[in-house]
Amino acid sequence: MQRPPTLPALACAAALILTACGGEDNDTERPTTPVGVTAQAGSATSVHVMWEQATDNKAVTGYEVFQKGAKVKTLPGTTHMVDIDRLSPATAYTFTVRARDAAGNLSGPSPAVPVTTPVATPEDHTAPSRPQKLHVRADGSRAATLSWGRAVDNTGVTSYDIYQEDSRIHSVRGTETTAHVTGLRPGTVYTFTVRARDAAENSSPDSNAVDLTTASAPGKGPSTAPTDLKVTVRKGNVDLTWTPPKTGEPVKEYQLFLNGKLATTIVWGAEPPAGTAAYTFTVTDKPGTRYSAKLRARLPDGKWGDFSAQRTMVIG
């Protein structure tokens, strides 16, 4: 009489069946090593580390940043830059970056990048001047090059920070006045500003804002974003004007976003005005409150179109 299989035998048989059928995913392929790693001092006690996106046979889920072999930061796979704080002034450091996938496979370490923090400037409360004459040039549909006039500071500019819709996306050394921004999407409106920073972490006011609309992807029509958005702040009110997108039909509905969140829907019950559109809303915030505003239109097919460029306002 044949004896029934034991539990360990059943478990082994199940494992063999899963493996044979492809039910068990043994991902042993490592992500590619991050390239384009840069490290620059943002202040006397911080360093800004950036790198280009690594690739994997499935997906990169995270990055690890090391300082002389010791892990100092763990970041999600969508992040390609980080500030390393609490460093010592006038000190040399080296940083490397490794990519990680969902199976825990780590890439090889990137080449070590050296950086030296500047000498501390105690009691420095003077911010650099505003960077001047910011310009942007599209490099295809997924990248752009920015250039600006040099800022001045009482102790020296250590870095320039590039912002896209109030979020810092890039930094370059204080000796540079150009930056190459990648990872953009085709057919999208972007608004860029630049701030100068010194060794004491004082940041300048924003440069002038510049807009860039990247070229549309092959087969996709023109941008559906409202254009020429202008913001005028008056006592207790904010006036918006813009040019509606060309959709083939009058646009009767828009969504207004303030600080990235939907604030209201603007609807014309009858025929919308020809040419420039306008909208006024009331504000009760205290003077000095900062807002960003952008719009998108409801298209004839009922979908929401592309966002306009973003405008920043300060309540007076």
Rank of each mutant, 00 (worst) to 15 (best):
R3E: 12
P5N: 00
A9C: 03
L10Q: 08
A13R: 09
A15P: 01
L18M: 06
G22S: 03
D25E: 14
T32W: 00
T33P: 03
T33R: 09
G36D: 02
V37M: 01
T38Y: 06
T38W: 02
Q40M: 15
Q40N: 13
A41E: 04
G42I: 09
A44Y: 11
T45H: 11
V47E: 10
H48F: 15
H48Y: 14
M50D: 10
Q53L: 11
T55W: 08
T55Y: 09
N57L: 14
K58M: 15
V65F: 11
F66M: 06
K68E: 14
K73Y: 07
G77W: 02
H80K: 13
M81Y: 15
D85G: 10
D85R: 15
P89A: 07
P89T: 08
Y93R: 02
T96Q: 06
L106G: 12
L106I: 11
G108L: 12
S110F: 01
S110Y: 06
T116A: 15
T117V: 12
H125C: 11
S129M: 00
R130S: 05
P131H: 02
D139S: 14
A143Y: 08
L146P: 00
L146D: 00
S147D: 00
S147A: 10
S147L: 03
G149A: 00
R150F: 01
V152A: 04
G156C: 02
Y160M: 04
Y163R: 02
Q164M: 15
Q164P: 12
I169W: 07
I169N: 07
H170L: 14
S171Q: 13
R173E: 13
R173A: 15
G174W: 00
E176D: 15
E176I: 11
E176L: 13
V181P: 10
R185G: 13
V189P: 11
V189C: 15
V189R: 15
T191L: 02
T191K: 01
T191Q: 03
F192W: 09
F192P: 12
D198P: 05
N202Q: 09
V210R: 01
T214L: 04
S223A: 10
T224D: 04
A225H: 06
A225W: 01
D228Q: 10
D228F: 06
L229Y: 08
L229T: 09
K230T: 14
K230I: 11
V231D: 12
V231N: 03
V231R: 00
K235E: 14
K235M: 11
G236M: 06
G236F: 00
G236Y: 01
N237S: 14
N237Y: 12
T241Q: 11
P244V: 05
K246G: 09
T247W: 01
E249Y: 11
V251H: 06
Y254L: 07
L256T: 05
L262I: 05
A263C: 02
T265D: 02
I266M: 06
W268H: 14
A270K: 14
P273A: 04
A274E: 13
A274L: 12
G275E: 03
A278P: 02
Y279L: 10
Y279P: 00
F281W: 07
T282G: 09
T282C: 04
V283D: 11
V283S: 06
D285K: 03
S292V: 02
K294F: 08
R298G: 05
G302R: 04
W304T: 13
S308I: 11
V314T: 13
G316V: 10
